[in-house]
């Protein structure tokens, strides 16, 4: 519990964070920025889990444990995505979305 901060404030914050992430994913033109947007979505759910655990169900640490796993998996995901981006960069010398597209409808 944090003095003077209700659960509604923090849930509003995480919801805004989530939608900033979704907006960024859809509009960014650079692969690295898209990756950062995905990280924001994941971090929004991490904060959600911790805060729900702390405010609503403080007896069992399920939410906190879940958030630790999310952070670890997100790190693996980012590493893999960056590896693929580097491989793509070596072929086309660019990380812009418009340069990567050869397959379209």
């Amino acid at each position: 519990m944090i003095e003077g901060v209700t659960i509604y404030d923090i849930l509003t914050l995480t919801t805004i964070l989530f939608f900033i992430g979704v907006y960024g994913f859809l509009t960014r033109k650079n692969l690295i920025s898209i990756l950062i947007s995905v990280e924001m979505i994941l971090n929004a759910s991490v904060v959600n889990f911790v805060i729900i655990n702390k405010y609503l169900y403080p007896d069992v640490l399920q939410g906190v444990l879940f958030s630790i796993f999310i952070i670890a998996v997100a790190a693996a995901e980012t590493a893999l995505a960056v590896a693929i981006i580097i491989n793509l960069y070596r072929q086309i010398s660019s990380v812009e979305v418009k340069d990567t597209e050869v397959m379209k409808y």
Binding site: E77, A81, I84, N87, L88, I92, V102, M103
Partner: peptide, 19 residues
């Protein structure tokens, strides 16, 4: 080139989905 492109498309959409 196509293989890398499909890899990056897959990982980004999968990450968004799991998020």
């Amino acid at each position: 080139r196509k293989s890398s492109e499909s890899g990056i498309k897959f990982i980004l959409s999968a990450a968004l989905a799991s998020g």
